[in-house]
Design a protein around this nucleic acid. Structure first.
Length: 315
DNA sequence: CGATGTCAAGGAATC
DNA sequence: GATTCCTTGACATCG
């Protein structure tokens, strides 16, 4: 089982995950690629084999108002091939996760069109790196718009019409508000999209009270036999945090103990909870785990150590 | 330098 | 139909 983390590196100073300057400063994908090389160095040093690349890696590349950014992939073909070669040498499993604004099933044709543009850019980015089918693009079901069946149907029809290289990488994850595991299973049955199980989202959005084993069985079987399935795992924050709250009228700032929202990610993985998940899903099929904790790579390394103490080894 | 405001983008709830 | 929240981190701006 491989363990991965998302985007931001905390274990080493000065590692940026993308060129995040504003458009006025002419940010560039080539700068981001340089950052990724440094991150790959760190992954190699720390023995981490899975990583989610920032979706902001190519700044403004699909922004309708800034055509000067739209050709960045063409400009960086060689650099991307070189970066991808390195990723393969290091045995990295890479992935991407477009932002919440990318909604394939929106009834608004313009939003649909921009979602396709964004997926096309993500897929081409991974293609230019020469990565295999394990390098997936994760998305959510989108909005419900008052009729979930119709909304799922729209996702399915549009998925079928995506370019082949996008369909080869796009995978669907259950979310904490709209699309449950049974909902995304319905989408899979109609278009074949592989499914990513997110344990925390499942805990928050599980009206039928399904157990980890049954939802894992449903999701893991949706992946081709030659690609290792991926799940998302995170422990929820349970402790209250001290937050500064500003009074709207007076501007006065007071410190308040904020109860955790059930959907907030905790700093660290609860190893007991993780083992519980492992045991619940044992024997179904091998899978990789993308961790989504606040402490990012540090949480991964701590979990790896905690698991090793229990005799469980991870990549 | 620290504090605060802003950011390209959607959806849903609220009025 | 318009406004606000959701949630997030880093950049930009202001004092």
């Amino acid at each position: 089982m491989g363990l991965g983390f998302a985007v931001k590196v905390l274990g080493k100073e000065g590692l940026k995950s993308n060129d995040s300057r504003r458009w006025q400063s002419d940010p560039r994908l080539s700068v981001s690629i340089g950052y990724l090389h440094r991150i790959f160095d760190y992954l190699q040093e720390s023995g981490i084999t899975m990583y989610r690349i920032s979706s902001e890696i190519a700044p403004y590349i699909t922004h309708p108002d800034f055509p000067q950014f739209h050709r960045q992939l063409d400009e960086c073909e060689e650099e991307l091939a070189c970066l991808g070669l390195r990723a393969r040498e290091l045995g990295l499993r890479l992935s991407m996760h477009p932002s919440q604004y990318i909604v394939l099933n929106s009834p608004d044709e313009r939003i649909y069109a921009s979602a396709v543009r964004d997926f096309v850019y993500h897929a081409r980015f991974l293609d230019l790196m020469g990565l295999g089918p394990e390098a997936v693009i994760v998305t959510h079901g989108g909005g419900v718009y008052g009729d979930k069946t119709a909304a799922i149907q729209r996702f399915v029809e549009r998925y079928k019409r995506l370019p082949e290289n996008v369909r080869a990488r796009l995978v669907l994850e259950n979310d904490e508000k709209n699309y449950t595991v049974p909902d995304i299973v319905q989408a899979h049955e109609q278009c074949g999209v592989p499914l990513v199980l997110d344990n925390l989202h499942h805990r928050l959005n599980n009206p039928n009270g399904l157990g980890y084993r049954e939802v894992a069985q449903e999701c893991l079987r949706t992946w081709q036999t030659d690609v290792t399935p991926k799940v998302h795992f995170s422990s929820a924050r349970t402790e209250a945090r001290t937050v500064n709250r500003r009074n709207r009228k007076t501007g006065e700032v007071t410190q308040v103990q904020a109860a955790p929202l059930p959907s907030q990610h905790s700093d660290w993985v609860d190893a007991d909870e993780f083992v519980e998940f492992l045991e619940a899903t044992a024997g179904i099929r091998d899978y990789d785990v993308m961790l989504e904790q606040k402490q990012k790579d540090l949480a991964l390394l701590k979990l790896r150590a905690d698991l090793a103490q229990r005799g469980i080894t991870t990549r």
